[in-house]
Design a protein around this nucleic acid. Structure first.
Lengths: 343, 343
DNA sequence: ATGAAAGCGCTAACAA
DNA sequence: TTGTTAGCGCTTTCAT
């Protein structure tokens, strides 16, 4: 049987109330008593019981807030499913999860959203945002007020965030190169499509990819690199123009959104030789294209897991009063081909 | 705020004790009262609170038993990690997990083990065993006594098991074929290595593989099929002999254990042309061989997830008193190549 | 057949 | 500064 505050109280010769005060660093305990209780607690290996805590705290339910740049981006649907799954599992423990969705990566929009979340006094935050100084400051201000923050999907470095839950973008790019090197050894004339030159994750994928190709000794030339802005129409136009100008292109590496637009530009016209396409993630449009064989493979990052794990981490953190390992969770790079795209 | 037994009691004009009796089908309640309470409960959408349940039940902790044919088989290490992770997460709720390990797939050993588990009066069981009538009977007897059983990793069909948690073996085989078809179009002279002709999962992998090849129009011939008995030494000898007799073999499909033995037989002698090897799972030996490039790719099945999920399912089941969706969980087919083998 | 009460581990409000 | 008490949702025991 695990040790309880009652055990500690008995052992220390004080009341349970005093133990509770000590364990929560509340004022009003004589330093020597506090010291003794503390040492006894750690000596006995005390760890608070979640069920007890939850039950006692039922009048002040736990609320978590999540910020996602998900409007118009179906990628985040799976991630939100993860949020909701965790919320459902923790419902009995008084946990509820609010999701604040914004559109795009505009700095002011994000700052406003973060201010809004702060005003809501959540007990914990999951944030997918942009890695710029103003956002960092805003987040650190929240953390300073004692609210734990988890960065999801995209890290915001050098803040006091509790941990990061998401993929290793560079690793994703390298895996693409590794798989491609198994499929073909021919010289690659590459079109690289990124989402935005300003988004670190996209750049890292590209870097991982090209460095991986070099390591495998695959000869390649990046004929052209363009921004899709995660927009299919824009991607379509840019890709079409690029392919027309550069008929030698035989391979397309899509590091972000706009997948459907790129693929449409490829399939719209008959090609002498097929163009091999790689992509990331598996939004419905991408799934369909993989199944049709238009895309050779797509590399996924367990978005559902990302949502689920971040909420669970926040909860664990609160339950253990910060005495929790704050390790990052790096999600796997999942290779999907037609056969396992529906897994 | 969720509805509690207190609410129901008030609404029905009875005491909480009576509500509890009704909800647990215990005797000693007038049928009409029972009926009323029951309908009010479902009307109000009552769902018992886990924290409350757990706390009240603390004197009779929850014990789960797990049977695994894991002795001498490192594959199950990850699965056991999943068991332990779930146990750790549920420790506050009084859950403990016992693992009974046996060696091999011998029927009598399994029957004896199952009898042992039954004698231990666990509140729930996770079982990886063999799909034969005697085992089925033994399991159904346990289920009849009211203990929920989850089949893990290998299903035991046509029993009253609550659900199956594990891979789709056929699907794994097909995925291997799909990936292989991307890598090569040359005619395959195949050596197929299975673990045992008597294990359904292995046979299904092979079937999925060959049917997948046909669908992709890859010409192939199965030159030889042999049993490794999941033993490296045995696999080594058999493979060596087979390769000597059949020098045209250019591809090896390993559907089960003995991976290291097969690979050693391949690498021991210099070959005119390289032999392509595919395998399943990622035990340490396999991981190393993938990284060395001896194995082209290996297909994994989330063993850790299997262990974790099965325990969580049992717990959910007990907590909700059987009013839980009893859906199977089919784990993903995860493609691993050198780049992502350590994920 | 049913109600009342105690207690699981913890927190918070109130007393002292 | 510290102890006492009530109560979170549920189960169990005892009393009626």
């Amino acid at each position: 049987m695990a040790v309880t505050i009652k055990d500690i109280a008995r052992e220390a010769g004080v009341s349970r109330g005093t133990v509770d005060r000590v364990l929560h660093n509340r004022s009003g305990v004589k330093p020597e008593v506090s010291q003794r209780v503390r040492s006894i607690a750690s000596e006995m290996g005390f760890s608070p019981n979640r069920a007890g805590k939850v039950l006692a705290a039922r009048k002040q339910p736990i609320r978590f807030g999540c910020l996602l740049p998900s409007i118009g981006n179906p990628f985040f649907d799976d991630l939100m499913m993860g949020f909701h799954l965790a919320e459902k599992e923790l419902a009995d423990f008084g946990v509820s999860v609010d999701i604040l969705q914004v559109k795009s990566f505009d700095k002011d929009i994000h700052l406003k959203a973060i201010a809004k979340m702060k005003a809501n006094n959540y007990q914990g935050l999951c944030i997918t945002s942009i890695d710029v100084p103003e956002v960092k400051e805003a987040i650190d201000a929240i953390i300073a007020s004692g609210v734990p923050v988890v960065t999801v999907n995209t890290d915001i470095t050098a803040t006091g965030r509790m941990c990061y839950v998401g993929p290793d973008y560079y690793h994703g790019g390298r895996t693409a190169a590794g798989l491609l090197s198994m499929i073909t050894q021919q010289e690659l004339s590459l079109l690289v499509v990124t989402g935005s030159f300003n988004i670190k994750g996209h750049n890292e994928r590209i870097k991982g990819f090209t460095e991986g190709l070099e390591e495998h000794g695959i000869p390649f030339e990046v004929v052209c690199t363009l921004e899709s802005l995660d927009d299919d129409n824009h991607a379509f136009v840019m890709t079409e123009r690029c392919l027309e100008k550069n008929p030698m292109i035989n391979t397309i590496f899509i590091a972000a959104g706009g997948v459907k637009g790129v693929c449409n530009a490829v399939t719209d016209k008959p090609r002498q030789k097929p163009i091999r396409i790689m992509s990331f993630d598996d939004v419905p449009a991408t799934k369909a294209l993989v199944k049709q064989g238009v895309i050779s493979f797509t590399l996924c990052q367990e978005p559902r897991q990302q949502g689920y794990v971040s909420i669970q981490k926040l909860f664990s953190y609160l339950m253990s009063e910060g005495k929790t390992p704050l390790e990052d969770t790096i999600t796997k790079t999942i290779i999907k081909i037609p056969e396992n795209i529906e897994d």
